[in-house]
């Protein structure tokens, strides 16, 4: 796949390329959605140990939080389930402004 820009690849292809480059990678996956969640189940965000990322799990609302958790998962190797919604007053910070709710599974590659 030499010569193909990252932007032309989907997150799972990016993850494979980063892995081949010797980077540590975490894969975040939307596994459940309720209400008006912007990205369907199965959507991916991939993150490396330096916080570079590709793809999305929401319309941009919770990516920052997911990237932080993903970097910790790269460190520990323990998968995590993250739950995002607009159920409490901190929602403005890491919630979905659309009013939906999503569950995101984060695991390390390898």
């Amino acid at each position: 796949m030499e010569g193909i820009a990252d932007d032309d690849l989907d997150p799972l292809s990016i993850a494979e390329r980063w892995m081949d480059d010797g980077r540590m990678v975490a894969i975040a996956t939307v596994v459940d959605t309720w209400g008006s969640a912007p990205r369907p189940a199965g959507s991916h965000l991939v993150v490396d140990e330096n916080g570079n990322f590709h793809g999305s799990v929401s319309g941009g609302c919770v990516e920052g939080a997911v990237i932080g958790e993903a970097m910790e998962v790269i460190g520990t190797g323990e998968p995590r389930m993250l739950d995002f919604g607009v159920v409490d007053e901190t929602a403005w910070r890491v919630g979905l402004s659309c009013g939906g709710r999503i569950r995101v599974y984060v695991e390390r590659l390898g």
Partner: peptide
Amino acid sequence: MDPHLLRKLNRERRARRAVLHLTELEGGR
């Protein structure tokens, strides 16, 4: 996720074959 599985998954997708990635959410197998 197992690196070999990621390679297999991407290989199948590039070949336009239907494929499913199954994860047990407790334990991550």
